[in-house]
Simulated assay, not measured.
Amino acid sequence: MREALDDRLAARLAALRVQRDWSLDDLAGRTGVSRSTLSRLERGEISPTASLLGKLCTAYGWTMSRLLADVEAAPPPVVRAGDQSVWRDDASGFTRRVVSPPHAGLRGELIEGVLDPGADIRYDAPPVAGLEQHVWVLAGALQLTDGDTTHDLETGDCLRFRLWGPTRFRNPGSEPVRYAVVVVLP
């Protein structure tokens, strides 16, 4: 298990360097760590010390906890229906199922929402500014307001947008509306 984590860490460190278009010499200059040590680290030939990780995290502008969370064990590829959390707000007529929960190594998640007839849910602000959302109506009709723009969506319609301000999800129909929301972190 430790070996697999070290392998993922080595691959992630190499990817961070490549994403910045830095050579090993560039990274050595920024960290004070020899080029050969960095090369061996990225090939998984050595395990990093806390001090070495600290130097690399400083160079990349990451916290050590973010780096380690980024290389945790991969999320399970299948999230069984029985393992998906479901939350119901009886007062508003809203049911929320987390189909694909967030994970440190992934930027997206999938949520299923069901609004009873007449249900009206308002959010004053996004949890993260610029959050990307794709709302796909699976059954029924949904009125979704993003800022000052209202969209009337029917079965099969998909609304794509970035979340910057308040939103409102409303079921104007006489039947429940079921929809999927794909959330992608910026």
Rank of each mutant, 00 (worst) to 15 (best):
P166V: 05
V79T: 12
I121Y: 07
L68H: 04
D83S: 14
Y60G: 05
L38F: 13
A119F: 02
L138T: 12
T145F: 01
G54T: 01
S51H: 10
A11G: 10
V99G: 07
P172Q: 06
S174K: 14
D26I: 04
Y60I: 05
L13E: 04
L131M: 12
I111N: 02
V181C: 13
H134L: 14
L38K: 03
R20V: 04
P126F: 08
V114A: 10
Y60P: 00
P75L: 07
Y179T: 09
W87L: 13
R20Y: 04
A139I: 02
P117Q: 08
L153S: 06
W87R: 14
Q143R: 13
Y179M: 08
L131N: 04
Q133F: 00
G113P: 00
E72A: 13
T167Y: 00
V33I: 15
V135M: 03
G147D: 05
V135Y: 02
S47Y: 00
A4N: 11
M1T: 08
F161T: 03
A104V: 01
R43G: 10
D90V: 14
A11Q: 14
L9H: 02
D83F: 04
L185R: 12
L56S: 04
E112Y: 03
L106E: 15
T63E: 12
E175G: 14
R8Q: 04
P127Q: 06
P117F: 03
T155Y: 01
T95P: 03
S92A: 07
R97N: 07
D21K: 10
S39M: 10
R8W: 00
L163H: 14
A11M: 08
R122W: 11
T37L: 15
D157S: 13
L153K: 05
L138M: 12
Q133E: 15
A14Q: 14
G32P: 00
A14I: 05
S39T: 09
